[in-house]
Design a binder for these strands. Structure first.
Lengths: 158, 158
DNA sequence: CAAAATTAATTTGCGTACAATTTAATTTTG
DNA sequence: CAAAATTAAATTGTACGCAAATTAATTTTG
């Protein structure tokens, strides 16, 4: 059934190999990071995406849900329940903006601010686990940023 | 409260910046890939993880659930329902191994095998969207593989 | 200025992810 | 060889991630 070589039947198993695919490498690395962070975040009762939200808030407190979404690339459908959990855990407060009642402003509680100091330990641990020099990490980071930018800019064409 | 400089209070906002973090770059790139694949996979009624399973099966048909999990890094808790959906969609068949009834062997249907040819179109589209040369893609891929390896090998230490 | 359009969050529904438990089959070992 | 241990899938429960629908507030515009 596949004896006669079809036009591009020559490349197949080479090109389709999982290990040869950039998309799969990215997918795997993301999972590896999530798993590596998990034991470190567990003692704070945080998940990795929740940690990302806190990272964003430590940088700039008092953002709206929309703004946070733009920072970390998540929509409100994901953020709404996630933020409620962060609120329930006592790390953030959510308040309607009195100036525009449509918006919800998310701000750190004292407990949330205190966590910032401890977060350094987590970063150091992960840095060590990744086994990357700062330069190496910076290079990969830049390549990935470029990649993500290109992928999302070509999205609209479909 | 943060007037006096604590030991590592000097680095903070630099180091904690989302954009400066490798973990976030990987996380974002993974989402960017998923979003880029989505419109291409939609017409086959496939999700990205389902597509990964098919990629694995095109390479090596008739694997057990466990084996597939090892290939793409997912456990049976994720794969069981996913494979049922692939079966319902007519792309794979699931059969208990007569030699060892604990195992379930997953094999491609004709419909699943036919999809392999079309998958080339998807790969080409994504390749174009990623805007990477093969060399560039290969380099990033290798860096990420190394990274994932190091992250998961240091996992056991916690 | 009131109706229509837009916007921000929330909610709903589906599909991953993954830990932990359960079920059933196969090995190990006493 | 039967009880105990191990193994492979499936199931359960929690939390993303995202599209689509909903709700409420604010702008736009007729």
């Amino acid at each position: 059934m596949t004896t006669k070589a079809a036009p591009f039947e020559a490349i197949p198993d080479e090109a389709l190999t999982l290990g040869k695919q950039l998309c799969f490498a990215v997918y795997s690395a993301a999972h590896a990071f999530t798993r590596a962070y998990k034991p470190l975040l567990d003692r704070f009762g945080l998940t990795y995406p929740q940690y990302l939200v806190l990272l964003a808030l430590w940088q700039q407190d008092g953002m709206t849900v929309k703004r946070i979404g733009e920072e970390i690339g998540l929509d409100s459908g994901t953020l709404s329940p996630l933020l409620k959990r962060l609120e329930a855990a006592g790390y953030v407060a959510r308040l309607r903006d009195p100036g525009d009642e449509r918006q919800v402003i998310v701000s750190l509680t004292d407990k949330g601010r205190e966590l910032k100091t401890e977060a350094f330990g987590i970063l150091a641990d992960i840095g060590k686990a990744s086994g990357c020099s700062l330069e190496e990490a910076g290079e990969i980071r830049e390549s990935l940023h470029q990649l993500a930018r290109r992928l999302s800019s070509s999205e609209s064409e479909n």
